[in-house]
């Protein structure tokens, strides 16, 4: 699941505070595997009662497609369910661009090879306008350089990511590999714990 550079069109979701209950409603959390959650991604926005696709929802509109979801601020707020990140990745998204993410979702995304890119509110606004005007607009997300470029807007912005997590994404590593490599330090710590802790 290594990630380096990606060029793709975008799917716009110009809604703020998209919570994880919208990304994947609780009633679809009953599976005991990580697979298949994409089917119910944004279920209650994507389908009208009777499971009829909602023509007003962006995932049902042919003019928009791509591996990059562009969403309003505070994306992924609410429940800690990692199923939200699994559903987005299972649907095929590789990058989420927003002007802000909720903390738990941000980490869950990174732990699943899904890159959250934080950009300034002004950049996000310009990107929404551009995608709506020209859905074929491509963005270039370059993780090693930490840049997102929108050639159509002649725009290139830097994004932050912590160096450890960046390295994990580029090399397809996860936290568990790293923590297990620090077993000696953990044992030393445990050895000095008082009995009541």
């Amino acid at each position: 699941m290594a990630f380096t550079k990606l060029i793709s069109t975008c799917v716009p979701l110009p809604i703020d505070n998209v919570d994880t209950d919208q990304i994947i409603p609780a009633r679809f959390l009953k599976a005991t595997s990580r697979e298949g959650f994409g089917e119910n991604l944004f279920r209650d926005w994507r389908y009208l009662p009777g499971d009829v696709p909602n023509p007003d929802f962006v995932l049902n509109q042919e003019r928009y497609s791509g591996l990059v979801l562009v969403a309003g601020k505070n994306f992924g707020c609410g429940s800690s369910r990692e199923h939200a990140a699994w559903a987005l990745a299972d649907h095929g998204f590789k990058v989420i661009v927003s002007s802000g993410f909720a903390d738990i979702f941000y980490n869950n995304a990174l732990n699943n090879g899904l890159l959250p890119v934080v950009v300034a509110a002004g950049v996000l606004g310009r990107l929404f306008v551009q995608i709506e005007k020209e859905p074929e607009t491509e963005v270039v997300v370059d993780l090693p350089r930490q840049t997102m470029t929108v050639p159509a807007l002649d725009l290139s912005v830097h994004f932050d990511i912590n160096p450890y997590k960046k390295d994990c994404l580029i090399n397809g590593l996860d936290d568990l590999d790293y923590i297990r490599s620090r077993a000696e330090a953990v044992s030393a710590y445990e050895a000095q714990l008082p009995a009541w802790r």
Binding site: E82, A85, N112, D174
Partner: peptide, 15 residues
């Protein structure tokens, strides 16, 4: 998240 639940079960630690 669940990936971290696994980390805690395996190591009793988190990054």
């Amino acid at each position: 998240g669940t990936s971290q639940v696994e980390q805690v079960l395996a190591t009793q630690c988190l990054l």
